[in-house]
Amino acid sequence: TTYYDVLGVKPNATQEELKKAYRKLALKYHPDKNPNEGEKFKQISQAYEVLSDAKKRELYDKGGE
């Protein structure tokens, strides 16, 4: 599973699309609303952290993490 899959976006997604997808999923899986989905929330946050940063995203796209 790639970070793009976690957020449900395509690899060519814009920053705005990433932000929108992250917010939607973060609300859905937030531990306050969904106590059993803490791990999913962490995955979503990690994916967004990497993909929202241009340098980290470039490194990730080249095969790094």
Rank of each mutant, 00 (worst) to 15 (best):
K40N: 08
K56F: 09
G63S: 13
N36H: 14
E16M: 10
D32H: 09
K33I: 14
S52D: 02
N12M: 06
Y29K: 02
E37N: 14
Y22F: 13
L18M: 05
Q43F: 08
K42R: 14
K33E: 10
R57L: 03
Y4A: 02
K56S: 14
S45W: 14
S45L: 10
K40F: 11
Y4D: 00
A26I: 14
G63D: 10
Q15R: 08
Y60K: 01
E17T: 05
L59N: 10
K20N: 15
D5S: 08
N34I: 05
I44D: 00
A26S: 12
G63R: 11
L25K: 04
H30G: 13
K24L: 13
P35H: 08
L51N: 00
Q46T: 11
Y3T: 01
L25Y: 05
E49F: 08
D5N: 07
L51K: 00
T14N: 07
Q43G: 06
N36R: 09
S52V: 06
F41I: 04
H30N: 09
A26H: 08
F41D: 01
K62A: 12
F41M: 08
K62M: 09
Y4T: 01
K62N: 11
Y4K: 00
E65R: 02
T2R: 06
K19F: 10
S45P: 00
P31N: 07
G63F: 15
L27Y: 11
D61K: 01
K33R: 10
K28Y: 11
G38K: 14
G64S: 11
L27S: 13
K33V: 15
D32S: 14
R23C: 14
T1G: 13
L27E: 14
Y3D: 01
L7I: 04
N36S: 11
Q15I: 10
S52H: 06
E58A: 09
K24I: 12
Y60D: 02
G63Q: 14
T14L: 04
L27D: 14
E49K: 12
P11Q: 09
A13R: 00
V6C: 06
S52A: 08
E37D: 14
K56N: 05
L18K: 01
V50S: 04
L59K: 07
R23T: 15
Y48K: 01
K56C: 12
K24G: 10
R23E: 15
Q43D: 08
L51W: 00
H30Q: 08
G38S: 15
A13I: 06
A54Q: 11
G64I: 15
H30K: 07
P31Q: 08
Y3L: 13
E17C: 05
E37K: 07
E39I: 09
L25C: 05
E65F: 15
K42V: 08
A26P: 00
D5K: 08
T2C: 11
F41W: 15
V9T: 04
E16H: 09
G8E: 09
L25R: 03
Y29Q: 01
Q46S: 06
L51E: 00
K24C: 12
V9C: 09
K20M: 15
T2L: 06
V9Y: 00
L27P: 04
